[in-house]
């Protein structure tokens, strides 16, 4: 420790006051450097007003059956899709082992919830997912242009196919389209959905994880 400073107490002797000061000063400089660096690194994280712009309200009644509407939430697209009976059936038929990603990716549920269709929707006919491909963030095409080989969405950038539950089925995307926090405002009859609420609010809105067979536990 004291090799360079030439202080008394060099080789093999008892540590001196100078050794202590040397280590203490170095330690204080390291901690001080870290404390200075932290605010300058953390300032790049989302600001309070960005975080506060977290939720939107949308009336699902305006989405026709078989159609998908894209709404802007947190600077990016969210798909609100009213599924047909056939699409719901198709989504429910898919076995977990045919899914490249077997997790529900639903912010309202535990991270370990399986990707059965029941864990992807609150009401079977309304599917709400974030609209950026989980590969590199492009916006997949949907009903009205190209729904891909699994009738859900198709991402033209690198050819990812999503099914009618927004789950990745083929292509380079690693994960299912995530389901944002949401709930229907005002109970069973309401068509107004609020997207982007806190997980605590979501807990009281009817989300419960289904078991892998698709039945609500």
């Amino acid at each position: 420790m004291t090799k360079e400073n030439g202080a008394p107490g060099g080789h093999g002797e008892e540590p001196t006051r100078r050794d202590f000061i040397y280590i203490a000063a170095g330690g204080a400089a390291a901690v001080g450097g870290g404390l200075v660096a932290w605010p300058f690194i953390d300032q790049m994280n989302p600001a309070a007003d960005t975080l506060a712009l977290g939720s939107i309200r949308f009336d699902t009644a305006q989405v026709e059956e078989g159609a998908s509407v894209t709404v802007m939430w947190r600077g990016g697209p969210v798909f609100v899709r009213r599924r047909t009976e056939a699409e719901i059936a198709e989504a429910r038929e898919a076995g977990l082992n045919s899914l490249p990603d077997d997790l529900a990716r639903n912010d309202n549920l535990a991270a370990s919830a399986p990707a059965v269709d029941a864990n992807r929707v609150l009401r079977p006919e309304i599917l709400i997912v974030k609209g950026n491909c989980t590969h590199l963030g492009c916006v997949p095409l949907g009903p009205g242009s190209n729904t891909g080989d699994y009738d859900g969405w198709y991402c033209p950038c690198h050819g990812s196919h999503y099914d009618t539950s927004g789950r990745i089925r083929r292509g380079p995307a690693p994960e299912n389209l995530p389901v944002p926090d949401y709930y229907f405002e005002g109970g069973e009859e309401s068509t107004i959905v609020k997207i982007g609420l806190s997980p605590e609010e979501a807990a009281s809105s009817g989300w419960q994880a289904a078991d892998a067979s698709g039945a609500v536990a």
């Binding site: 994280n45 989302p46 960005t50 947190r74 600077g75 990016g76």
Partner: peptide
């Protein structure tokens, strides 16, 4: 990624930085 964006997507904060 969120730290780079300064938000939940490429947006104003990203452009500015």
């Amino acid at each position: 990624r969120e730290w780079l964006w300064g938000g939940f997507s490429v947006g104003q904060a990203t452009l500015n930085r």
